[in-house]
Amino acid sequence: MTMKFLVKYKDYVYRVALIVGWWGVMAAIAPAFRGEASLVGSLEFLPLLGLIALALTVPLIAGEFDLSVGSMAALAGVVAVLTSPLGLAPAVLAGTLAGGAIGALQGYGIARLPISSVAFTIGSLIVLRGVTYVLANNQPVPVEDLTLTDPLFDTYGVFTISTIATIVVYVLVGLFLAFTRFGRELYAVGGGRKEALAMGIPLRRTLPLAFMFSGGCAGLAGALATMKGGTADPSSYANMLIVGIAATLIGGVGLTGGRGTALHAFLGSLLLCVLSAGMNFAGQTPDTTGIVTGVVLLLVIAVSVASRAIRDRRSLAAMRQAGLELVRGKARAAH
């Protein structure tokens, strides 16, 4: 039973083992990286990275790229700071809604125009960055009332409002993807575009939805991080695209569409968070963390490519065996 469980969910088990293993190694090396401090340190970066990874995952499941997530996060950050006189929650909500609305428009454009999502979002990552600069009047915008953002620093055990919000969003999006009709349609258009279209699942319904989720998650990520920082810099979060893609891929979300869950993205982000927090506590500089991240990315992907190759070879051998037996059986019957 347990064995069956482990085999069925080996994708997740493998990544959880990596996370726990890394945590164990770092805790052994760095005495500071133990207990509550290590968890608080690891979770600090999770809202930004985790939500960006989720923003990349949903379109990837539908077989599309959204390269505009970094610009979207910066834009939502500026929107949140500009609407901050209304209060903290309305400001974060405004950033999220702005991201979701722009994302839905992007998805609609990609579905209706003869342009790939890669080309479209390379264009829109430049456009949205421009809009961000225009909104911010080409300079960093500070939050006027600094006491406003105090609740973001309150802790509940090892959690903050940002990490709780991130986990809630992950649960909701994960349930949506796994159990609703619209969520399953995203897998359908990502896994077999032609078949899904033939079945009557239109792109102009699925793609706006996928990109709305993407824009909304990126927007929430940017709004939360910016409000916590207290200043919206229009040039920020440009490198989050690269880190986010790394987390998504380490988590095991497929680049070709139809493969991956919210849990994959979550575990990938968590692994990167524990990795960088551990290195940080061990006194390593960010550049060492960068090198290790790159190597881990290549290794994790190499393992999954190798395991798929082995599985393919095994199933091929099994098929050959079955074919051979069939032929032998027929030969015997002919005798």
């Binding site: 080309a119 264009g123 829109s124 990552l125 430049i126 080409n138 229009p234």
Partner: peptide
């Protein structure tokens, strides 16, 4: 820089 970005990106699309 903002307006330049908007025009350049729109040009690509």
């Amino acid at each position: 820089p903002g307006t330049r970005g908007v025009i350049e990106g729109a040009l690509v699309i």
